[in-house]
């Protein structure tokens, strides 16, 4: 597997902060789609990215808590898009099931992120929570 070195190939970074409310998830989705559209992703890849960012935001919102907003950073490269979602401790991909079974809804969002993105990493940052970092590569 090729390791992405964002610093070496970066074409630019876009920061987005949205209120941690359901009605704003579409803004994150459309923003990521617009960014991905500037890179050589296929239409199908862009749909995958839209779903992945929406699932990450939805997970944070549904986790509740005191969060007022969700911070999203998109690092763009010639052949990749890395999306960082500051989750403040809400997202724990390692606890998601490998595949939902029997019509279970639990963990479906995180499962989809893992299935649609090439790399998904959760970086704990102590009490303040951590980051979900997910990367999609062109042509993967």
């Amino acid at each position: 597997m090729t390791k992405v070195t964002a610093e070496a190939k970066s074409l630019g970074t876009v920061d987005l902060r949205i209120p941690s409310k359901a009605e704003w998830v579409a803004v994150a989705r459309l923003t990521v789609a617009a960014i991905a559209n500037r890179l050589p992703f296929t239409v199908e890849d862009i749909e995958d990215l839209k779903l992945a960012i929406a699932e990450a935001c939805t997970y944070v919102i549904q986790a509740g808590g005191e969060r007022e907003h969700i911070d999203i950073t998109c690092d763009t490269g010639s052949d990749f898009l890395t999306i960082r979602v500051r989750d403040h401790g809400a997202i724990h991909p390692e606890s998601a099931p490998r595949r939902p079974s029997g019509g279970s809804v639990e963990g479906l969002g995180i499962f989809l992120i893992q299935a649609l993105m090439d790399d998904v990493k959760h970086t704990p940052e102590g009490e303040s929570g951590g980051e979900l970092v997910m990367t999609k590569r062109v042509g993967s």
């Binding site: 749909e47 839209k50 779903l51 699932e55 939805t58 019509g103 809804v105 479906l108 969002g109 989809l112």
Partner: peptide
């Protein structure tokens, strides 16, 4: 045009 896990959850809930 688009459905996410919350939409799937609604369909699963209805089916159950």
């Amino acid at each position: 045009r688009y459905i996410d896990s919350t939409g799937l959850g609604v369909l699963i809930g209805g089916l159950k």
